[in-house]
Write a protein that binds this DNA or RNA. Structure first.
Lengths: 238, 238
DNA sequence: AGAATAGTGTCTTTCAGACACTATATG
DNA sequence: CATATAGTGTCTGAAAGACACTATTCT
Protein backbone atom coordinates (compact mmCIF):
# COMPACT_ATOMS: atom_id res chain seq x y z
CA UNK A 1 0.00 0.00 0.00
CA UNK A 2 2.51 2.57 1.17
CA UNK A 3 4.84 1.40 -1.55
CA UNK A 4 2.23 2.12 -4.21
CA UNK A 5 1.59 5.59 -2.95
CA UNK A 6 5.27 6.42 -3.04
CA UNK A 7 5.67 5.02 -6.51
CA UNK A 8 2.85 7.19 -7.81
CA UNK A 9 4.35 10.29 -6.27
CA UNK A 10 7.74 9.42 -7.68
CA UNK A 11 6.43 9.65 -11.23
CA UNK A 12 5.23 13.22 -11.77
CA UNK A 13 5.82 12.92 -15.51
CA UNK A 14 3.85 9.70 -15.86
CA UNK A 15 1.76 9.30 -18.99
CA UNK A 16 -1.82 10.27 -18.33
CA UNK A 17 -4.34 7.54 -18.95
CA UNK A 18 -5.53 8.22 -22.45
CA UNK A 19 -9.34 8.31 -22.52
CA UNK A 20 -11.37 6.51 -25.18
CA UNK A 21 -11.83 8.82 -28.17
CA UNK A 22 -14.60 8.19 -30.69
CA UNK A 23 -16.18 10.06 -33.59
CA UNK A 24 -19.97 9.76 -34.00
CA UNK A 25 -22.28 11.34 -36.57
CA UNK A 26 -25.82 12.61 -36.36
CA UNK A 27 -26.94 12.23 -39.98
CA UNK A 28 -30.30 13.81 -40.77
CA UNK A 29 -32.55 13.66 -43.78
CA UNK A 30 -36.14 14.71 -44.47
CA UNK A 31 -38.84 12.47 -45.90
CA UNK A 32 -42.62 13.05 -45.98
CA UNK A 33 -42.48 16.13 -43.74
CA UNK A 34 -40.49 14.22 -41.13
CA UNK A 35 -36.97 14.79 -39.87
CA UNK A 36 -35.18 11.44 -39.78
CA UNK A 37 -31.90 10.45 -38.17
CA UNK A 38 -29.73 7.49 -39.14
CA UNK A 39 -29.18 4.94 -36.38
CA UNK A 40 -27.22 1.70 -36.38
CA UNK A 41 -27.78 -1.41 -34.35
CA UNK A 42 -24.82 -2.01 -32.06
CA UNK A 43 -23.14 -5.40 -32.55
CA UNK A 44 -20.69 -5.15 -29.65
CA UNK A 45 -20.72 -4.23 -25.97
CA UNK A 46 -21.53 -1.93 -24.38
CA UNK A 47 -25.23 -1.49 -25.24
CA UNK A 48 -25.23 -4.54 -27.54
CA UNK A 49 -28.46 -4.62 -29.54
CA UNK A 50 -29.34 -0.99 -28.79
CA UNK A 51 -29.61 1.64 -31.48
CA UNK A 52 -26.86 4.21 -31.57
CA UNK A 53 -25.18 6.85 -33.68
CA UNK A 54 -22.93 5.56 -36.48
CA UNK A 55 -19.32 6.11 -35.48
CA UNK A 56 -16.14 4.58 -34.21
CA UNK A 57 -12.45 5.09 -33.62
CA UNK A 58 -9.98 7.11 -35.65
CA UNK A 59 -7.80 4.96 -37.88
CA UNK A 60 -4.51 6.84 -37.71
CA UNK A 61 -3.15 4.92 -40.71
CA UNK A 62 -6.04 5.82 -42.96
CA UNK A 63 -7.79 8.98 -41.76
CA UNK A 64 -6.25 12.36 -42.53
CA UNK A 65 -8.36 13.94 -39.78
CA UNK A 66 -11.59 13.43 -37.84
CA UNK A 67 -13.74 14.52 -40.79
CA UNK A 68 -12.35 11.54 -42.66
CA UNK A 69 -13.17 9.30 -39.72
CA UNK A 70 -16.79 10.46 -39.71
CA UNK A 71 -17.13 9.98 -43.49
CA UNK A 72 -15.45 6.59 -43.44
CA UNK A 73 -17.74 5.32 -40.71
CA UNK A 74 -20.86 6.54 -42.51
CA UNK A 75 -19.65 4.84 -45.67
CA UNK A 76 -18.89 1.60 -43.80
CA UNK A 77 -22.09 1.45 -41.75
CA UNK A 78 -24.61 2.71 -44.28
CA UNK A 79 -22.83 2.89 -47.64
CA UNK A 80 -23.32 6.61 -48.19
CA UNK A 81 -21.48 9.91 -48.40
CA UNK A 82 -23.11 12.87 -46.66
CA UNK A 83 -23.75 16.01 -48.73
CA UNK A 84 -22.93 18.17 -45.72
CA UNK A 85 -20.72 17.47 -42.72
CA UNK A 86 -19.62 19.75 -39.88
CA UNK A 87 -18.40 19.38 -36.34
CA UNK A 88 -21.07 19.61 -33.69
CA UNK A 89 -19.27 19.35 -30.35
CA UNK A 90 -17.24 17.21 -28.03
CA UNK A 91 -19.02 15.42 -25.20
CA UNK A 92 -16.88 13.92 -22.48
CA UNK A 93 -17.00 12.54 -18.98
CA UNK A 94 -16.15 9.63 -16.73
CA UNK A 95 -19.62 8.09 -16.65
CA UNK A 96 -21.00 8.17 -20.17
CA UNK A 97 -19.29 4.91 -21.14
CA UNK A 98 -19.10 1.99 -18.69
CA UNK A 99 -15.60 1.23 -19.97
CA UNK A 100 -14.29 4.45 -18.44
CA UNK A 101 -13.67 8.12 -19.20
CA UNK A 102 -14.69 8.75 -22.77
CA UNK A 103 -14.47 11.61 -25.24
CA UNK A 104 -16.74 11.71 -28.27
CA UNK A 105 -16.53 14.18 -31.11
CA UNK A 106 -20.04 14.42 -32.58
CA UNK A 107 -20.58 15.48 -36.19
CA UNK A 108 -23.77 16.76 -37.72
CA UNK A 109 -24.49 15.72 -41.33
CA UNK A 110 -27.15 15.92 -44.04
CA UNK A 111 -28.15 13.88 -47.12
CA UNK A 112 -31.04 13.69 -49.55
CA UNK A 113 -33.29 10.77 -48.76
CA UNK A 114 -33.71 9.99 -52.47
CA UNK A 115 -29.94 9.55 -52.80
CA UNK A 116 -29.55 6.96 -50.08
CA UNK A 117 -32.82 5.14 -49.65
CA UNK A 118 -31.69 1.99 -51.57
CA UNK A 119 -28.41 1.64 -49.66
CA UNK A 120 -30.03 1.92 -46.26
CA UNK A 121 -32.79 -0.54 -46.94
CA UNK A 122 -30.15 -3.07 -48.05
CA UNK A 123 -28.26 -2.75 -44.76
CA UNK A 124 -29.81 -4.81 -41.96
CA UNK A 125 -28.20 -2.88 -39.15
CA UNK A 126 -28.92 0.71 -40.21
CA UNK A 127 -32.26 2.49 -40.16
CA UNK A 128 -33.86 5.93 -40.45
CA UNK A 129 -35.87 6.91 -37.36
CA UNK A 130 -38.10 9.97 -37.02
CA UNK A 131 -36.48 12.36 -34.55
CA UNK A 132 -39.84 12.98 -32.90
CA UNK A 133 -40.29 9.25 -32.22
CA UNK A 134 -37.02 8.74 -30.40
CA UNK A 135 -38.60 8.40 -26.93
CA UNK A 136 -39.85 5.01 -28.05
CA UNK A 137 -36.35 3.80 -28.84
CA UNK A 138 -33.72 2.53 -26.44
CA UNK A 139 -30.66 4.56 -27.36
CA UNK A 140 -27.08 3.78 -26.38
CA UNK A 141 -24.98 6.13 -24.20
CA UNK A 142 -26.10 9.78 -24.22
CA UNK A 143 -26.91 9.58 -27.92
CA UNK A 144 -30.44 10.92 -27.45
CA UNK A 145 -29.03 14.08 -25.93
CA UNK A 146 -26.49 14.44 -28.76
CA UNK A 147 -29.26 14.12 -31.34
CA UNK A 148 -31.26 16.86 -29.61
CA UNK A 149 -28.23 19.16 -29.65
CA UNK A 150 -27.72 18.43 -33.35
CA UNK A 151 -31.38 19.14 -34.07
CA UNK A 152 -31.15 22.50 -32.33
CA UNK A 153 -28.05 23.40 -34.31
CA UNK A 154 -29.77 22.41 -37.56
CA UNK A 155 -32.80 24.51 -36.65
CA UNK A 156 -30.63 27.49 -35.79
CA UNK A 157 -28.63 27.26 -39.02
CA UNK A 158 -31.83 26.94 -41.02
CA UNK A 159 -32.91 30.38 -39.79
CA UNK A 160 -29.89 32.15 -41.26
CA UNK A 161 -28.59 29.95 -44.09
CA UNK A 162 -29.60 27.63 -46.92
CA UNK A 163 -28.12 24.56 -45.20
CA UNK A 164 -31.32 22.52 -45.75
CA UNK A 165 -30.61 22.26 -49.51
CA UNK A 166 -28.32 19.39 -48.57
CA UNK A 167 -31.45 17.41 -47.66
CA UNK A 168 -32.52 17.64 -51.33
CA UNK A 169 -31.31 16.13 -54.62
CA UNK A 170 -29.06 18.33 -56.78
CA UNK A 171 -32.10 19.56 -58.69
CA UNK A 172 -34.95 20.80 -56.54
CA UNK A 173 -37.85 23.24 -56.53
CA UNK A 174 -38.60 26.15 -54.22
CA UNK A 175 -41.63 24.24 -53.00
CA UNK A 176 -39.49 21.30 -51.96
CA UNK A 177 -36.99 23.56 -50.22
CA UNK A 178 -39.80 25.38 -48.43
CA UNK A 179 -41.24 22.09 -47.23
CA UNK A 180 -37.87 20.83 -45.94
CA UNK A 181 -37.26 24.10 -44.09
CA UNK A 182 -40.71 23.99 -42.51
CA UNK A 183 -40.15 20.40 -41.41
CA UNK A 184 -36.86 21.30 -39.77
CA UNK A 185 -37.97 24.42 -37.92
CA UNK A 186 -41.48 23.05 -37.28
CA UNK A 187 -43.07 26.31 -38.41
CA UNK A 188 -44.47 27.63 -41.69
CA UNK A 189 -42.48 30.26 -43.56
CA UNK A 190 -43.46 32.71 -46.30
CA UNK A 191 -42.68 31.50 -49.81
CA UNK A 192 -41.87 35.10 -50.67
CA UNK A 193 -39.19 35.34 -47.96
CA UNK A 194 -37.55 32.21 -49.28
CA UNK A 195 -37.57 33.49 -52.87
CA UNK A 196 -35.96 36.74 -51.77
CA UNK A 197 -33.19 34.88 -49.99
CA UNK A 198 -32.59 32.61 -52.96
CA UNK A 199 -32.24 35.65 -55.18
CA UNK A 200 -30.08 37.59 -52.73
CA UNK A 201 -27.72 34.72 -51.92
CA UNK A 202 -26.75 34.34 -55.55
CA UNK A 203 -25.67 30.75 -55.00
CA UNK A 204 -28.34 29.02 -57.11
CA UNK A 205 -28.71 28.44 -60.83
CA UNK A 206 -31.98 28.00 -62.68
CA UNK A 207 -32.07 24.68 -64.46
CA UNK A 208 -33.58 24.59 -67.94
CA UNK A 209 -36.15 22.13 -66.70
CA UNK A 210 -39.46 22.42 -64.93
CA UNK A 211 -41.33 19.59 -63.27
CA UNK A 212 -45.01 18.93 -62.50
CA UNK A 213 -46.11 19.68 -58.96
CA UNK A 214 -49.89 19.24 -58.81
CA UNK A 215 -50.46 22.73 -60.20
CA UNK A 216 -48.33 25.01 -62.33
CA UNK A 217 -44.98 23.51 -63.37
CA UNK A 218 -42.18 24.25 -60.88
CA UNK A 219 -38.79 25.66 -61.82
CA UNK A 220 -35.85 23.44 -60.92
CA UNK A 221 -32.84 25.02 -59.21
CA UNK A 222 -29.33 23.73 -58.53
CA UNK A 223 -26.60 24.93 -56.20
CA UNK A 224 -23.96 26.77 -58.27
CA UNK A 225 -20.92 24.55 -58.69
CA UNK A 226 -18.35 25.38 -56.02
CA UNK A 227 -20.59 27.93 -54.31
CA UNK A 228 -20.23 28.37 -50.56
CA UNK A 229 -23.29 28.79 -48.42
CA UNK A 230 -24.05 32.34 -47.37
CA UNK A 231 -25.03 33.45 -43.86
CA UNK A 232 -27.85 35.97 -43.89
CA UNK A 233 -27.69 38.85 -41.45
CA UNK A 234 -31.16 38.27 -40.07
CA UNK A 235 -32.99 35.20 -38.85
CA UNK A 236 -36.26 34.01 -40.28
CA UNK A 237 -39.35 33.73 -38.17
CA UNK A 238 -37.80 32.61 -34.81
CA UNK B 1 6.37 -10.73 -44.25
CA UNK B 2 3.55 -12.95 -45.28
CA UNK B 3 3.08 -13.96 -41.68
CA UNK B 4 2.60 -10.35 -40.61
CA UNK B 5 -0.01 -9.71 -43.26
CA UNK B 6 -1.97 -12.74 -42.18
CA UNK B 7 -1.75 -11.82 -38.55
CA UNK B 8 -3.12 -8.35 -39.26
CA UNK B 9 -6.05 -9.75 -41.18
CA UNK B 10 -6.70 -12.26 -38.44
CA UNK B 11 -7.28 -9.47 -35.94
CA UNK B 12 -10.21 -7.41 -37.19
CA UNK B 13 -11.02 -6.35 -33.63
CA UNK B 14 -7.53 -5.16 -32.81
CA UNK B 15 -7.24 -2.00 -30.71
CA UNK B 16 -6.65 1.02 -32.88
CA UNK B 17 -3.63 3.13 -32.00
CA UNK B 18 -4.99 5.86 -29.77
CA UNK B 19 -3.92 9.29 -31.03
CA UNK B 20 -2.60 12.01 -28.71
CA UNK B 21 -5.52 14.04 -27.35
CA UNK B 22 -4.96 17.52 -25.91
CA UNK B 23 -7.11 20.44 -24.80
CA UNK B 24 -5.83 23.95 -25.63
CA UNK B 25 -7.40 27.34 -24.94
CA UNK B 26 -7.39 30.59 -26.86
CA UNK B 27 -7.90 33.09 -24.06
CA UNK B 28 -8.55 36.64 -25.23
CA UNK B 29 -8.74 39.93 -23.43
CA UNK B 30 -8.81 43.57 -24.53
CA UNK B 31 -6.47 46.29 -23.30
CA UNK B 32 -5.86 49.75 -24.76
CA UNK B 33 -7.88 49.09 -27.91
CA UNK B 34 -5.91 45.91 -28.60
CA UNK B 35 -7.09 42.32 -28.69
CA UNK B 36 -4.62 40.21 -26.71
CA UNK B 37 -4.19 36.46 -26.50
CA UNK B 38 -2.55 34.53 -23.66
CA UNK B 39 0.48 32.48 -24.68
CA UNK B 40 2.77 30.29 -22.63
CA UNK B 41 6.42 29.47 -23.18
CA UNK B 42 6.82 25.76 -23.83
CA UNK B 43 9.14 24.00 -21.37
CA UNK B 44 9.13 20.58 -23.08
CA UNK B 45 9.59 19.16 -26.57
CA UNK B 46 8.32 19.51 -29.16
CA UNK B 47 8.77 23.23 -29.89
CA UNK B 48 10.70 23.82 -26.65
CA UNK B 49 11.08 27.55 -26.05
CA UNK B 50 8.37 28.50 -28.56
CA UNK B 51 5.21 30.28 -27.50
CA UNK B 52 2.04 28.23 -27.61
CA UNK B 53 -1.53 28.04 -26.38
CA UNK B 54 -2.01 27.06 -22.75
CA UNK B 55 -3.27 23.49 -22.60
CA UNK B 56 -2.47 19.90 -21.91
CA UNK B 57 -3.83 16.44 -21.40
CA UNK B 58 -7.07 15.41 -19.73
CA UNK B 59 -6.59 14.13 -16.20
CA UNK B 60 -9.22 11.40 -16.06
CA UNK B 61 -8.94 11.21 -12.27
CA UNK B 62 -9.60 14.86 -11.74
CA UNK B 63 -11.48 16.37 -14.70
CA UNK B 64 -15.22 15.82 -15.00
CA UNK B 65 -15.06 16.74 -18.68
CA UNK B 66 -12.95 18.68 -21.17
CA UNK B 67 -14.27 22.04 -19.91
CA UNK B 68 -12.67 21.19 -16.58
CA UNK B 69 -9.43 20.33 -18.35
CA UNK B 70 -9.35 23.70 -20.08
CA UNK B 71 -10.08 25.57 -16.84
CA UNK B 72 -7.57 23.57 -14.84
CA UNK B 73 -4.80 24.24 -17.36
CA UNK B 74 -5.55 27.98 -17.43
CA UNK B 75 -5.44 28.04 -13.64
CA UNK B 76 -2.18 26.09 -13.57
CA UNK B 77 -0.37 28.02 -16.29
CA UNK B 78 -1.58 31.54 -15.58
CA UNK B 79 -3.39 31.46 -12.26
CA UNK B 80 -6.75 32.65 -13.54
CA UNK B 81 -10.34 31.58 -14.17
CA UNK B 82 -11.89 32.69 -17.45
CA UNK B 83 -15.18 34.61 -17.28
CA UNK B 84 -16.35 32.88 -20.47
CA UNK B 85 -15.39 29.50 -21.91
CA UNK B 86 -16.80 27.61 -24.89
CA UNK B 87 -15.66 24.92 -27.28
CA UNK B 88 -14.17 26.17 -30.50
CA UNK B 89 -13.37 23.09 -32.58
CA UNK B 90 -11.28 19.98 -32.91
CA UNK B 91 -8.20 20.09 -35.10
CA UNK B 92 -6.59 16.79 -36.01
CA UNK B 93 -4.15 15.19 -38.40
CA UNK B 94 -1.06 13.04 -38.73
CA UNK B 95 1.42 15.87 -39.31
CA UNK B 96 0.56 18.64 -36.87
CA UNK B 97 2.62 17.08 -34.06
CA UNK B 98 6.00 15.44 -34.79
CA UNK B 99 5.17 12.76 -32.21
CA UNK B 100 2.40 11.40 -34.44
CA UNK B 101 -1.30 11.70 -35.16
CA UNK B 102 -2.77 14.24 -32.79
CA UNK B 103 -6.20 15.52 -31.88
CA UNK B 104 -6.63 18.87 -30.16
CA UNK B 105 -9.84 20.27 -28.77
CA UNK B 106 -9.49 24.05 -28.84
CA UNK B 107 -11.47 26.25 -26.46
CA UNK B 108 -12.16 29.92 -26.81
CA UNK B 109 -12.22 31.99 -23.60
CA UNK B 110 -12.49 35.58 -22.33
CA UNK B 111 -11.40 37.52 -19.22
CA UNK B 112 -11.17 41.12 -18.10
CA UNK B 113 -7.61 42.37 -18.27
CA UNK B 114 -8.03 44.23 -14.98
CA UNK B 115 -8.91 40.98 -13.21
CA UNK B 116 -5.81 39.07 -14.23
CA UNK B 117 -3.05 41.52 -14.94
CA UNK B 118 -1.25 40.92 -11.60
CA UNK B 119 -1.29 37.11 -11.91
CA UNK B 120 0.09 37.10 -15.42
CA UNK B 121 2.91 39.50 -14.73
CA UNK B 122 3.98 37.30 -11.81
CA UNK B 123 4.22 34.23 -14.06
CA UNK B 124 7.46 34.10 -16.03
CA UNK B 125 6.21 31.74 -18.67
CA UNK B 126 2.87 33.34 -19.58
CA UNK B 127 2.33 36.52 -21.53
CA UNK B 128 -0.34 38.56 -23.32
CA UNK B 129 0.46 39.15 -26.99
CA UNK B 130 -1.49 41.41 -29.38
CA UNK B 131 -3.28 39.21 -31.91
CA UNK B 132 -2.26 41.57 -34.70
CA UNK B 133 1.43 41.15 -33.81
CA UNK B 134 1.49 37.37 -34.00
CA UNK B 135 3.45 37.22 -37.27
CA UNK B 136 6.49 38.36 -35.31
CA UNK B 137 6.23 35.41 -32.93
CA UNK B 138 7.36 31.86 -33.48
CA UNK B 139 4.32 29.84 -32.55
CA UNK B 140 4.23 26.10 -31.82
CA UNK B 141 2.24 23.63 -33.95
CA UNK B 142 -0.67 25.15 -35.89
CA UNK B 143 -1.50 27.45 -32.97
CA UNK B 144 -1.46 30.56 -35.14
CA UNK B 145 -4.20 29.09 -37.31
CA UNK B 146 -6.24 28.11 -34.24
CA UNK B 147 -5.98 31.65 -32.87
CA UNK B 148 -7.22 33.05 -36.19
CA UNK B 149 -10.22 30.71 -36.12
CA UNK B 150 -10.97 31.76 -32.54
CA UNK B 151 -10.72 35.42 -33.48
CA UNK B 152 -13.20 34.93 -36.32
CA UNK B 153 -15.61 33.18 -33.98
CA UNK B 154 -15.30 35.98 -31.43
CA UNK B 155 -15.94 38.58 -34.15
CA UNK B 156 -18.98 36.68 -35.41
CA UNK B 157 -20.47 36.29 -31.91
CA UNK B 158 -19.88 39.96 -31.20
CA UNK B 159 -22.20 40.85 -34.07
CA UNK B 160 -25.20 39.06 -32.57
CA UNK B 161 -24.58 38.86 -28.82
CA UNK B 162 -23.14 40.66 -25.80
CA UNK B 163 -20.30 38.16 -25.40
CA UNK B 164 -17.68 40.96 -25.17
CA UNK B 165 -18.93 41.94 -21.69
CA UNK B 166 -16.75 39.09 -20.44
CA UNK B 167 -13.72 41.19 -21.41
CA UNK B 168 -14.82 43.77 -18.82
CA UNK B 169 -14.96 43.93 -15.01
CA UNK B 170 -18.32 43.19 -13.38
CA UNK B 171 -19.13 46.91 -13.37
CA UNK B 172 -18.64 48.67 -16.67
CA UNK B 173 -19.89 51.60 -18.73
CA UNK B 174 -21.49 51.67 -22.17
CA UNK B 175 -18.45 53.53 -23.42
CA UNK B 176 -16.14 50.74 -22.27
CA UNK B 177 -18.34 48.09 -23.84
CA UNK B 178 -18.50 50.05 -27.08
CA UNK B 179 -14.74 50.35 -27.16
CA UNK B 180 -14.22 46.61 -26.54
CA UNK B 181 -16.70 45.71 -29.28
CA UNK B 182 -15.02 48.06 -31.74
CA UNK B 183 -11.63 46.60 -30.91
CA UNK B 184 -12.89 43.08 -31.53
CA UNK B 185 -14.71 43.69 -34.81
CA UNK B 186 -12.23 46.35 -35.95
CA UNK B 187 -15.01 48.70 -36.97
CA UNK B 188 -16.85 51.56 -35.29
CA UNK B 189 -20.44 51.00 -34.15
CA UNK B 190 -23.22 53.41 -33.25
CA UNK B 191 -23.54 54.08 -29.54
CA UNK B 192 -27.29 54.27 -30.11
CA UNK B 193 -27.43 50.74 -31.54
CA UNK B 194 -25.58 49.40 -28.53
CA UNK B 195 -27.90 51.20 -26.10
CA UNK B 196 -30.94 49.74 -27.87
CA UNK B 197 -29.53 46.25 -27.58
CA UNK B 198 -28.69 46.69 -23.93
CA UNK B 199 -32.25 47.79 -23.28
CA UNK B 200 -33.83 45.05 -25.41
CA UNK B 201 -31.71 42.21 -24.04
CA UNK B 202 -32.90 42.90 -20.50
CA UNK B 203 -29.84 41.19 -19.04
CA UNK B 204 -28.18 44.23 -17.47
CA UNK B 205 -28.80 46.13 -14.25
CA UNK B 206 -28.00 49.78 -13.66
CA UNK B 207 -25.61 50.17 -10.77
CA UNK B 208 -26.21 53.05 -8.33
CA UNK B 209 -22.81 54.40 -9.21
CA UNK B 210 -21.46 56.63 -11.94
CA UNK B 211 -17.80 57.12 -12.74
CA UNK B 212 -15.80 59.92 -14.36
CA UNK B 213 -14.92 59.45 -18.01
CA UNK B 214 -13.29 62.65 -19.24
CA UNK B 215 -16.67 64.28 -19.81
CA UNK B 216 -20.08 63.68 -18.30
CA UNK B 217 -20.18 60.95 -15.61
CA UNK B 218 -20.89 57.50 -17.04
CA UNK B 219 -23.52 55.12 -15.68
CA UNK B 220 -22.16 51.78 -14.47
CA UNK B 221 -23.93 48.59 -15.53
CA UNK B 222 -23.64 45.00 -14.35
CA UNK B 223 -24.77 41.73 -15.87
CA UNK B 224 -27.92 40.58 -14.02
CA UNK B 225 -27.01 37.75 -11.68
CA UNK B 226 -27.63 34.40 -13.37
CA UNK B 227 -28.66 35.99 -16.67
CA UNK B 228 -27.90 34.06 -19.86
CA UNK B 229 -26.60 35.89 -22.88
CA UNK B 230 -29.19 36.60 -25.55
CA UNK B 231 -28.70 36.07 -29.27
CA UNK B 232 -30.11 38.93 -31.30
CA UNK B 233 -31.91 38.15 -34.53
CA UNK B 234 -29.85 40.52 -36.62
CA UNK B 235 -26.15 41.16 -36.95
CA UNK B 236 -24.60 44.53 -36.36
CA UNK B 237 -22.74 46.34 -39.09
CA UNK B 238 -21.03 43.35 -40.91
C1' DA C 1 -16.44 79.39 -22.37
C1' DG C 2 -14.71 75.22 -24.75
C1' DA C 3 -13.68 70.45 -25.09
C1' DA C 4 -14.85 65.91 -24.14
C1' DT C 5 -17.74 62.23 -23.23
C1' DA C 6 -22.74 60.52 -21.98
C1' DG C 7 -27.03 59.90 -23.47
C1' DT C 8 -31.67 60.94 -26.47
C1' DG C 9 -34.82 61.95 -30.53
C1' DT C 10 -35.94 60.91 -34.86
C1' DC C 11 -35.48 60.09 -39.76
C1' DT C 12 -33.80 56.72 -43.07
C1' DT C 13 -32.71 52.09 -44.66
C1' DT C 14 -33.02 47.23 -44.99
C1' DC C 15 -35.22 43.12 -45.01
C1' DA C 16 -38.76 39.86 -43.16
C1' DG C 17 -44.03 39.14 -42.59
C1' DA C 18 -48.51 39.29 -44.57
C1' DC C 19 -51.38 38.67 -48.10
C1' DA C 20 -53.71 39.65 -52.32
C1' DC C 21 -52.93 39.04 -56.93
C1' DT C 22 -51.53 36.80 -61.44
C1' DA C 23 -49.83 32.48 -64.00
C1' DT C 24 -50.09 27.83 -65.43
C1' DA C 25 -50.74 23.15 -64.69
C1' DT C 26 -54.39 19.10 -63.90
C1' DG C 27 -58.95 16.84 -64.01
C1' DC D 1 -64.86 25.20 -65.42
C1' DA D 2 -62.62 24.45 -60.36
C1' DT D 3 -58.65 23.58 -57.84
C1' DA D 4 -53.91 23.32 -56.82
C1' DT D 5 -49.46 24.89 -56.82
C1' DA D 6 -45.94 28.49 -58.73
C1' DG D 7 -44.54 32.84 -58.62
C1' DT D 8 -45.07 38.42 -58.11
C1' DG D 9 -46.38 43.15 -56.21
C1' DT D 10 -46.62 45.82 -52.53
C1' DC D 11 -47.76 47.35 -47.95
C1' DT D 12 -46.46 46.97 -43.07
C1' DG D 13 -43.38 46.39 -39.23
C1' DA D 14 -39.13 45.76 -36.56
C1' DA D 15 -34.60 46.79 -35.72
C1' DA D 16 -30.14 48.85 -37.31
C1' DG D 17 -27.61 53.13 -39.33
C1' DA D 18 -26.94 58.02 -39.37
C1' DC D 19 -26.64 62.01 -37.16
C1' DA D 20 -28.14 66.11 -34.90
C1' DC D 21 -29.32 67.41 -30.53
C1' DT D 22 -29.22 67.91 -25.31
C1' DA D 23 -26.75 66.89 -20.73
C1' DT D 24 -22.99 66.90 -17.70
C1' DT D 25 -18.37 67.10 -16.23
C1' DC D 26 -13.54 68.98 -16.38
C1' DT D 27 -10.10 72.51 -17.32
Amino acid sequence: MLYNVLETQAEPNMEYTNPLFTVDSVLFTVKNEQLLVLLTKRAQAPFTGCWGLPGGFIDVQQDTNTDATASRKLEAKAGLKPAYLEQLQVISGPDRDPRGFSVTLAYFALVAYQNVSPQISSVESASWIAVNDLEKINLAFDHLEIIQIAKQRLQQKTLYSMTPVFCLPTQFTIGQLKSVIETIIEKPIQRKSLMRRIEASDIFDLSEKKIPSGGRMAQLYTLKPGADLVNFERNLNA
